[in-house]
Amino acid sequence: MTAASPLLEARGLSKFFPARDGKGVVKAVNGVSLTLAPGETLGIVGESGCGKSTLARMLMRLIEPTEGKVLFRGEDLLALDHRQMRAKRREIQIVFQDPYASLDPRMSIAQIISEPLEIHGIENRSGRAARVKELLSLVGLDPSAADRYPHEFSGGQRQRIGIARAIALEPKLVVLDEPVSALDVSIQSQILNLLDDLKERLRLSYIFISHDLSVVEHVSDRVAVMYLGRVVEEGRAEAVLGAPKHPYTQALISAVPEIDAARRRNRILLSGDPPNPESIPPGCPFHPRCPFAIEICKSQYPSWRGDAASGAACHLVEDSGGTGTA
Rank of each mutant, 00 (worst) to 15 (best):
C284R: 00
G68F: 10
P143E: 02
G51P: 07
G311F: 02
P244E: 13
S114I: 01
V232W: 05
P150R: 02
S144Y: 01
I63S: 15
V132T: 10
A224K: 00
R267Y: 12
A129F: 01
S14R: 05
P171W: 11
S14C: 08
K199D: 06
P105K: 13
S181H: 06
D196L: 15
S5D: 13
H211R: 07
A239G: 04
K298N: 01
L80Y: 10
V175H: 05
E9F: 09
E258N: 03
H315D: 11
L42F: 07
A224T: 06
D184Y: 13
L192M: 15
S205L: 10
A19R: 08
G51I: 10
L138V: 03
Y100T: 02
P65E: 13
I268W: 02
D81H: 08
Q157W: 07
G22Q: 08
I187D: 05
C314S: 06
L62E: 12
F286S: 11
P179F: 03
L269S: 11
D104K: 11
G311D: 03
Q250K: 15
D98P: 00
V180R: 07
F17I: 09
P275T: 04
P274M: 11
D221Y: 12
L316A: 10
G39M: 10
G43R: 06
L141F: 11
A261G: 00
R148L: 09
G283F: 02
H211T: 12
H218V: 03
